[in-house]
Write a protein that binds this DNA or RNA. Sequence first.
DNA 1: ATACAAATGTGATGTGGGTCACGCAATAAA
DNA 2: TTTATTGCGTGACCCACATCACATTTGTAT
Lengths: 180, 180
Amino acid sequence: LSKTIRLTDEQFSYLFSHFTRLSFKKGQAIISEGDKVDHEYFVLSGCLKSFFINNEVKMFILQFAMATWWTSDYNALYSGNRATINVDCIADAEVLALSNNDREKLCNEVPAINSFFRLRTNKGFVALQKRLLSFMNSDAKHRYEELMQQYPELYNTAPKHLIAAYLGVSRETLSRLYNS
Amino acid sequence: LSKTIRLTDEQFSYLFSHFTRLSFKKGQAIISEGDKVDHEYFVLSGCLKSFFINNEVKMFILQFAMATWWTSDYNALYSGNRATINVDCIADAEVLALSNNDREKLCNEVPAINSFFRLRTNKGFVALQKRLLSFMNSDAKHRYEELMQQYPELYNTAPKHLIAAYLGVSRETLSRLYNS
DNA sequence: ATACAAATGTGATGTGGGTCACGCAATAAA
DNA sequence: TTTATTGCGTGACCCACATCACATTTGTAT
């Protein structure tokens, strides 16, 4: 948290006072398609996933969110539209919720917080670009290796068919990948 | 520009004074792999592309940047690493360059500018997520139609093999797409 | 106008990965 | 313990798209 900006203790506790602590059990939904979205979530422990479902059939995972990650349906959160992305809980999780209004309020009141959120999204943007490139550039095997290298803990935390949905391949193909 | 934030005339001209106007001719390179990157670019007219080259062979286009778009190698710009992404000019362009230092300075001095860049990247992040989903979800034909619907002017501005490189398909496949 | 490079179209053929179908764990519920 | 439910592996077959090869057009420089 304190890596990107410096806050006084006072500022930090002021920031902290706007978060709501929540617990979720494995399998529990946090944001469902069609919901009004007005919070984003900071993960303290456990693991969430954000995903899109195609024609009520196929699932694509945008992001696994583990400790210190933020997640939400940012399209819905920023635009005010209804959710098109789902978020749910893969492993029992503790999270802090921050509302869109409170974030904007905090950003207007405390310049360092404004910068924090700016820099946070900058990093997210760059990470997404890398992911997009690896989609265009690499085959499923290579993407799988990249993922396992970056987040080895997923191998235990997440069932394989979810990893497949993150990589954008079928579970069958993924299964054939590690037997080689 | 003025859609996301409100600035006084004074603030605006202060902001503006940090931009350097540059002209580029079709084909001219703006950022090349290995460069030190310390500016981002706002396009006034013309068209740029940012792209990655795989093993000195295959090109993947991250973004076409036309009027009112920003572009750079944001990974390099934010991290200080050398460029891995190239940016060059597809159609004679007028751009405004803003240095990383000046942006940070402006963001610290003028809260509204801080918010502007925060919100700009938020939008970019959401747009990238959509692009990623369309990669996972749709076939080449569908992606092509989405692109042409969103940026019809590209049909005239950009050679087809560049459109193919944006869509992540071979130029042959793209060629076969519109003949159907 | 001529020459050369870049861009585009089109066939033939190969392949990564999807889909369908089935069997077999492993976990959860009864 | 029995019974579902969910997750996982594996074969057979298919298709969207890549790759190679070559012809044709368009743009650009001399």
